[in-house]
Simulated scan of single mutants.
Amino acid sequence: MLDVNSPEREAELFAAIELFFYAFRAFTAKPDAILAERGLARLHHRILYFVARRPGQRVSDLLATLGVSKQALHGPLKQLVELGLVQVAADASDGRARCLSLSAAGAELEARLSQTQRELMAGIFAAQGRAAEQAWREVMAGLAEQV
């Protein structure tokens, strides 16, 4: 059993939680500002990001990836489609299923959003070195496995 209740360890863990919060705020600040210019929010970015990484995926696959309900996805996805950023087509093997891809405008916006984050990560990784980058990846993978 991990000792998370000693005063020293508890303080270290609270400090780690705060660092995670502040790091995430820094990681999302520029994309959030770009999205806000268009009246969009962070979920819109996540949709654009994962549709860009897996063009042609079904809506059901995107739901699973994002870990949100159909109701939570419906509004933002509909907005992205109405703005001409995401395209929806029937699945060739199952006409009931809908597949997603980015339009040229959607791909341009997603690239702009992700570029800010790639540059941020590249700069931090370069400053901290490969060993620190690998340790960070291991911590993030460990966190991701908890879902």
Rank of each mutant, 00 (worst) to 15 (best):
C99P: 02
R42C: 03
L102Q: 11
S60L: 08
R112L: 13
L62M: 05
A92S: 12
E82K: 03
L109C: 09
S114G: 07
R98Y: 09
L40P: 01
E82T: 04
L109D: 07
H45A: 15
L80Q: 02
R58D: 14
H44N: 05
D94N: 14
V59L: 15
I47S: 00
A89D: 14
V86H: 06
V81H: 11
K78A: 10
Y49F: 14
D91T: 01
L66T: 03
V51P: 00
L77K: 01
G75W: 07
I34K: 07
A107G: 06
V59H: 13
Q79M: 10
L66F: 07
L63M: 08
S69P: 04
E37K: 14
R112A: 13
V59G: 09
A97K: 02
R112C: 10
I47E: 00
Q79V: 06
G56L: 10
L83I: 03
R53W: 10
L100Y: 13
A107S: 09
A41D: 12
A89Q: 14
G106D: 14
K70Y: 04
P76L: 04
E108V: 00
A64K: 05
L63K: 08
V68F: 10
L109P: 02
A52Q: 09
A36N: 06
D61V: 09
L77M: 03
T65N: 00
G39H: 03
R54D: 15
S114K: 03
G75M: 07
Q79A: 13
G84T: 04
C99L: 11
A33H: 09
L83G: 00
Q87D: 13
L109V: 07
G75K: 14
I47R: 00
G39M: 05
G84M: 07
R42D: 02
V51S: 05
D94V: 09
P55K: 07
R54P: 06
G95M: 05
R96G: 01
S114T: 04
I47W: 01
Q79K: 13
A89W: 09
V86W: 10
A105R: 15
V88A: 12
G67M: 05
H74E: 08
H44R: 03
D94Y: 09
A107D: 09
C99F: 12
S60C: 05
L80T: 01
L109N: 06
A97I: 02
A97P: 00
I34W: 05
K70E: 05
R54W: 15
A36H: 08
S60T: 14
Y49M: 14
S60Y: 07
L73K: 01
R46Y: 15
R98L: 11
Q87L: 12
V68N: 10
I34C: 05
L113C: 07
A33K: 12
L73T: 01
R53V: 05
A90R: 08
V88T: 06
Q71A: 13
L113K: 03
Q87C: 08
H45K: 14
L80W: 01
C99I: 04
R58A: 15
L77Y: 00
S101F: 12
H44D: 11
K70W: 07
L43K: 03
L40W: 08
R54C: 13
L77W: 01
